[in-house]
């Protein structure tokens, strides 16, 4: 019975010594200890080592480790006043992503209905050109044309918001196409001019949602900056008073 205890037994004994076994494990270990002198000796070894380590001399710290404002670099801990503001940059990035992805997917959605006419225009207009690029350019031109189109039709005030946006006009809506594809895209003209291509209500809702998200981004970033600045200022004042 007094064979050398396994490491598993030593581990259990060590936890037993520290009172870290469950009640049932403890009862089982006590029963084994009564009948196994090997285990008893191993437990005594562990107990002695622990007792010796507990007596290990301790020293006083050689100096005080207190921080001065200079060593702390006068940088306050990040404020936890409004937890969401700690994540302001992440939220801002997400919102911006929503705006742009909304823009792209929204336009793709709006263009679905126009798929058939587009195909025909590609067949006739881009027979000899590059196979990928022209349709994309066509999409973009088309969506630009449509958004300006719908804006001019339904929502006068919204068109004033984006600075630098040209006054929506059917002719101006075609302008980018004329710059990039001036010679090769005569078929764009009838498409851009079609007023009833898409339900314009959807475009307006999307524009409003996007404008709302952008406002939220600006507000959030602004308030996070303001709060941070105020906390920094009060922290520095507090340190100066000391």
């Amino acid at each position: 019975m007094s064979r050398q205890p396994s490491f598993h037994d030593i581990k259990t004994l060590s936890a037993y010594l520290d009172g870290q076994l469950t009640r049932s494990e403890q009862v089982r270990m006590e029963a084994r200890l009564q009948s196994d002198p090997g285990l008893q000796a191993a437990l005594e070894d562990l107990r002695q080592v622990r007792a010796l380590l507990r007596q290990a001399p301790k020293r006083r710290a050689p100096r005080n480790f207190t921080l001065s404002p200079k060593t702390a670099r006068v940088k306050p801990p990040v404020p936890r006043l409004v937890p969401i503001l700690n994540w302001a940059s992440v939220v801002t990035a997400l919102l911006l992503f929503c705006v742009f992805s909304g823009n792209i997917f929204g336009n793709a959605l709006l263009n679905l209905g126009a798929a058939a006419p587009m195909l025909t225009s590609q067949e006739t207009g881009y027979g000899g050109g590059s196979p990928e690029e022209p349709p994309i350019a066509n999409d973009q031109v088309e969506s630009m044309a449509m958004s300006t189109e719908s804006a001019v039709q339904e929502s006068g005030p919204l068109t004033a918001a984006p600075e630098g946006t040209p006054i929506p006009d059917v002719a101006i809506g075609r302008a980018p196409a004329e710059v990039t594809q001036e010679v090769e895209t005569p078929t764009l003209e009838p498409r851009a001019l079609k007023p009833d291509d898409q339900p314009s209500m959807l475009a307006i809702i999307m524009t409003i949602v996007q404008a709302g998200l952008l406002c939220l981004v600006v507000l959030l970033a602004g308030s996070a900056l303001l709060l941070r600045w105020q906390r920094d200022r009060s922290f520095r004042q507090k340190l100066r008073r000391k």
Partner: peptide, 21 residues
Amino acid sequence: QRGDLDSFNRLVLAYQDQLFN
């Protein structure tokens, strides 16, 4: 946590021996 260095330094004094050892 609100930035009071004095409070933090009192914690430092309380724990510096244990941490140093």
